[in-house]
């Protein structure tokens, strides 16, 4: 089936996707919650900033990441000095690019699922003696959980497909930053690479399909012993 080199690509892709999604999760949930529940000046600006990677050419996002998180970039050099984390031309950089690109999608989905939680239930909980923090843990979180998990799976699928920002930020280094889409693109440039393209594309399609089915299934699960339509 897959050659050792292709297995390496798959493993790297999964690792990059997983780390990207997990780092993105708390940030996306926080932003989704703030956008769903809070009113403050500059909210539409924050909303626009979060959505920027969705509409910006990915190569621009990658270039911006390079400026900020490259070894001489302000954030990149600071992070290297304080925590020893390097993004430039490393798999961590690929994960960062994937996270930034997945963020808008995850925030959107989480915001929707938080907005769908009936605030009247939260009010009822307050009158029963629950502090705002307990209301969040016992009402808001469990009721939005199916949507939040679906958003995580969707973000993971998006991370696996990340191409433009990754290649412009961390290039395509075999074993380090060459994830599935980059490997497919690379194989397309080589004469006789069609078979490899086919195999890797098949892996991509099955991963994408699997995650989409999983996220739909999660969304249809409603808490309360009731399964939706």
């Amino acid at each position: 089936m897959l050659s050792p080199e292709e297995w390496e690509v798959l493993q790297l892709s999964l690792r990059v996707g997983l780390i990207a999604t997990l780092t993105c999760l708390p940030v996306a949930f926080g932003l989704g919650w703030v956008l769903a529940r809070k009113r403050f000046p500059g909210k539409s600006l924050l909303d626009a900033l979060v959505h920027l990677p969705l509409v910006l050419p990915p190569v621009v996002t990658g270039w911006a990441l390079l400026l900020l998180f490259g070894r001489s970039g302000p954030l990149g050099s600071a992070l290297e000095a304080c925590c020893g984390v390097v993004f430039a031309f490393r798999w961590t950089g690929a994960a960062l690019a994937a996270a930034v690109m997945a963020l808008p999608l995850m925030v959107r989905a989480m915001r929707l699922s938080i907005e769908a939680v009936d605030t009247r239930l939260e009010n009822a909980a307050r009158t029963l003696g629950a502090t705002p923090w307990r209301v969040f843990r016992s009402i808001t979180l469990p009721l939005s959980l199916p949507g939040v998990l679906a958003a995580v799976v969707l973000g993971f699928a998006r991370s696996l497909g990340e191409f433009g920002a990754t290649i412009s930020f961390v290039a395509s280094i075999p074993g380090e930053t060459r994830t599935l889409p980059l490997a497919i693109y690379g194989a397309m440039q080589i004469p006789g690479g069609e078979a490899q393209v086919l195999r890797l594309a098949a892996v991509s399609v099955s991963l994408a399909l699997g995650t989409l089915v999983l996220s739909e299934w999660l969304l249809r699960r409603q808490p309360g012993g009731q399964r939706g339509l």
Binding site: R120, L121, N123, T127, G129, A130, Q222, P223, Q226
Partner: peptide
């Protein structure tokens, strides 16, 4: 006083039972 400290028993028109709890 915040609602949780008023010790009021509020029976809402629409019951508002928590759907995820038995």
């Amino acid at each position: 006083l915040p609602p949780e400290r008023r010790r009021c028993g509020y029976v809402f028109q629409d019951a508002r039972l928590f759907p995820q709890l038995r």
